[in-house]
Design a protein around this nucleic acid. Structure first.
Lengths: 133, 133
DNA sequence: ACAATATAATTGCATTTGCAATAAAGGAGT
DNA sequence: ACTCCTTTATTGCAAATGCAATTATATTGT
């Protein structure tokens, strides 16, 4: 029943379990590593935009960012033109660990698609983009 | 970067946010409704097998099942041949609410795939099955 | 300019989550 | 039968999660 929607959820949970194990020692489990990746790639988003970009609850995102600020991975900067927002930037510590995080994501992506031909991978990407949540 | 693995995670989180809202009043959010669906469909799995079937952490699954037992949706039965395991069965209350849960899953599945032709849907299913987490 | 509405950040609080440890069986090899 | 190893269920504890409410600022309408 509904194999596609169930498979998508199952794959996500399996990847989450794996990443939680992999990043436990760095304490970057529970998607924390994803925040660092995204902020390094797109520095300067404000808190709400970052949460929306990752499709994560704004409160959870806010607390996670606070956690990473305390641990010197991220920092906030006020916006001169808009006092409501705070923009999120990576620290040197975040940039330093980024290659490891990127390598993990690359490896998981490669593993996920290992049985697919390049044509199939392109087609899967196209079809997933057509999905609407 | 890595659009497929990111898209899969994003779709899962969007579906989770939607289902949390939809099932808030029934207090069947946070995937609780999925447990009921699965147990009605496959009654008699033992606790660990149920968790593995849903790709959910065994401790989390255990506590969730306890929650649903307390609320009269599920019940446990000892196995006469194996005293280590407890099998999970749905109650009448679970069977009564199952159509609503099934309808929600059907609607979300239909929405997800609304822009795909039947051929594309079949191809997406095939490609997702080839993915390995 | 002023009021009403909307958006962003933040906090309170209760619940969920999951690693690690423990307890109770079961299974395999001798 | 006995020891060792595995599997299952369970609990303790600390952390993550997210709804609802609050505060501050910005935007829109008149």
């Amino acid at each position: 029943m509904f194999p596609i929607i169930r498979r998508i959820g199952a794959l996500t949970r399996l990847i989450q379990i794996d990443s939680n194990r992999y990043f436990k020692d760095d304490k970057l489990n529970n998607n924390l590593f994803i925040y660092i990746i995204r902020v390094v790639e797109r520095p300067g988003l404000f808190l709400g935009a970052l949460a929306d970009d990752m499709q994560i609850d704004r409160t959870t995102s806010f607390r996670t960012v606070q956690n990473l600020i305390k641990r010197d991975y991220l920092r906030l900067a006020a916006d001169p033109a808009n006092r409501k927002i705070k923009r999120v930037y990576p620290t040197e510590k975040a940039k330093a660990i980024y290659p490891k995080l990127h390598a993990y994501e690359a490896a998981k992506s490669a593993q996920l698609l290992a049985n697919l031909t390049p044509t199939e991978t392109a087609e899967l990407q196209r079809l997933l983009e057509k999905c609407q949540a």
